[in-house]
Each structure stands twice: as structure tokens, then as C-alpha cells.
Design a protein around this nucleic acid. Structure first.
Lengths: 190, 190
DNA sequence: GTAGCTGCCTAATGGCTTTAGGCAAGCAGG
DNA sequence: CCTGCTTGCCTAAAGCCATTAGGCAGCTAC
């Protein structure tokens, strides 16, 4: 009946990412994707190994997009300017693409993780830190701290965890960035 | 046939929490729980409204346990001592009970959230901060920052996000706590 | 024009969720 | 005792999702 629709892994992955943003990453389903392409479910299995494979691809896509945005934001900036820019990349991405952001947190297998943009993220954070004066072991600690704060904050904020207390989250966010900048400029000795 | 087993919401919730720790919170299923009690699936629906209800109860349990541990850890401590203790409560709990920790992150409805121990957590963090010298608006910002770091760090560490780079995570963890302590003792003015 | 590849389809199995309705075990009062 | 009633667990059934096996028909290339 229906002539070939022209499915490809790429189209499926992109559509999956959009679906995630609409209904949440955990509700991304092979069936729903098939429905959207007006195609039978089994047809997708020629392009995607299984549900987990699909989710992994969406996760990799999100990590790439995020890394691209981060690279863009960091270009030509240094110090607190760069810190703010990078932080906002994560926060804005999560707001614009909640499903993709959730996907980026998807637990990847070792092979997928190796080929992911995860490395780029770490490298960019490290690049950011060159604007501050940290020696090697501390640099790694700081990379991890920044990652934790960015992810933790965004994740709690998205989950509505801050929505019950008083001051609006925008104010907190900028004060947190002030604090991190101060901390990095004045990193304590062991 | 099988005499009454004596199911109760409490037993189901506890068993659900254990199941979560064994197989992961997202794989907690009404069916598996029924299997463990050697009972038919439908039987659980007299005790639990549905799958989401079950997960919500597990989440509330985890939040309570976590709050209890935190209260315990904070008792009689102040300053950096208290900071370290509280931070370790979260990290240790996540390691001992990964499924429960994941459950604690479960998105609760407004009603469930109101009755949850979430409030206690915020209050305890605030209590911790009395050992430092922060005035009101900054105190809230700091509460949120600490929550972000704790959750973000633990969450990334559990996800294996740190396992690919060099220094071991224990070292980073203690340096991060040093850094937070320094930051709180020297919180930047707006 | 035809052979073959490949993409999408039909069919089938099995798991999880949820609801409706039934039976019997245990408790209460005579 | 023993008669009823409550209530806990069961059978049955429908719906959705994932996944696999095998078939048919376009599209491509010669």
C-alpha cells in the first residue's frame, strides 16, 4: 500500500528527539514513533536495533547538540564571561529541549560513551578553567564541581524542586554563578 | 488456594524499595512485586492505586529515610563538620540504596510533594548554613547551590560519568567539600 | 525488461497495566 | 457451633508496548 516513506536512522533519531521534547524522554516509544511516520511498528526495526538503541541515538544526538552550543558560546570568551555563557548553554538547552536534556543523561554503554560528545564537554569545561589559575589536580576537581552544579541545578529546577520556595530561580542562578566565579578565582589549597 | 498472605501498603512499599535497589527504580514493576509475594498481579491493586501510586510511595519512603539520616548526621555538628556529614549522607545513601535514591528524584505531584520530607531537607540545609555567616537572600541561594552540588555530583558519579577520567572520585569529593566550605565562609557580595 | 535488493507489511509471542466480577477465609454475633 | 458478612486474593479480559520471523512489492541496475 503506502509507498516507501523513506525512513532512515537519522530521521528516526531526530523525530525521536522531538517526541522526547513533547512527551518526555521516558515516554519515547518505538510504537509512537511508528505512528508518527504512519508506518507499522515492525518497520522501524530495520533501522534501529531496538528501543534502547533508539534512545542511545537520541542521547548521542543531544550530547552533540549540547557540545556544539557550548563550543559556540565559549568562542571568544574567557573568565566569568565564559563561565556564565557555558552555564547558560546547559540551562537554556534544558528549558528549550527538556526531553533531549533528559536524553543526554541516559546511561550509555561503554562503547557508546566512548564515541559520545561527553569528552568534548569535559574538554570545554577544562578550557574554561584556563581563564582561572588552577593547577592540574585541582583543575579536574573543578571540572567535576562545575559539571555537578550545572547538572544538579538544572535538573532540580526542571523537576520543580525550587518552585516551592520564595526567591525566583533566575536570581539564584546568577548569584550561584557569581559564587562559582569567586570560588574559582580563590580556590582553596589542600 | 493460597491462604491470605497479608499484603499491606507498607509491606508493598518496602518491598518495592528493595526491588528498586536490586534492579533499578525504573524497573520496579507491579508484576515483579506480585511475583515476589507469590501472589497474582491483580491482588496488589486493592492496596495500591496503580503503578505510579506505588512509585510515589517508594519515593516518599526514600525521602523520609534520607531526611532521618540527615537529621542524625547533623546532630551536634556545625560548620565544615556538618557540611561534610550532610554531604556524605546523600552520597552514602545513593551508594547503599541506588534504587531508593533514584526514587527520591521521582517527580511527585503537588499534593504528594507537599506531604513529602522535601521540606525537611531544605530546612536542614538551612540549619547547616547557620554555622556560616549568610544573610537571608544569600542563605536561600546557598541552600540551592548545596542541593545542586550534592545531587549533581552523586547523580553523575552513580551514572559513571566520572569513571572515565583519572583522579579517583573520593579525592575529588573531599576537595569539592573543601571548596564549598571555603566558598560559604567567603560568600561574595552581590 | 528483468533480477535482486531492500523497505515496509502481516502475524505472532510475551510482558506489563488496569478493571470487573467471583469465591472463600476469617471474624462477629447469635 | 454456625451463619453471615467483610474483605483479601483470584480468574478473566482488554489494551499497549517490544521484538522476531517471514513475505511481497517497489526501486535500481544491468
Amino acid at each position: 500500500m503506502a509507498a516507501r516513506v523513506g525512513l532512515t536512522v537519522e530521521r528516526l533519531t531526530r523525530a525521536g528527539a522531538e517526541l522526547a521534547d513533547e512527551v518526555g524522554f521516558d515516554r519515547v516509544t518505538v510504537s509512537e514513533l511508528a505512528r508518527r511516520f504512519d508506518v507499522k511498528v515492525a518497520s522501524l526495526y530495520s533501522h534501529v536495533r531496538n528501543s534502547q538503541d533508539l534512545k542511545t541515538r537520541i542521547a548521542l544526538l543531544a550530547l552533540e547538540e549540547l557540545a556544539d552550543r557550548a563550543a559556540d558560546a565559549l568562542a571568544g570568551r574567557a573568565g566569568k564571561d565564559a563561565l556564565t555563557a557555558l552555564a547558560n548553554v546547559y540551562r537554556d538547552y534544558a528549558r528549550e529541549h527538556p526531553g533531549r536534556y533528559a536524553a543526554a543523561q541516559f546511561r550509555l554503554g561503554p562503547e557508546a560513551a566512548a564515541g559520545s560528545a561527553g569528552v568534548r564537554h569535559a574538554q570545554m569545561t577544562r578550557a574554561l578553567l584556563r581563564g582561572y589559575d588552577l593547577t592540574e589536580p585541582d583543575q579536574t576537581h573543578a571540572v567535576r564541581l562545575l559539571g555537578s552544579v550545572f547538572h544538579g541545578y538544572v535538573s532540580i529546577e526542571m523537576g520543580g524542586g525550587f518552585s516551592h520556595s520564595a526567591p525566583d530561580t533566575q536570581e539564584t542562578w546568577s548569584r550561584v554563578l557569581d559564587a562559582l566565579d569567586a570560588l574559582l578565582r580563590n580556590w582553596p589549597a589542600p
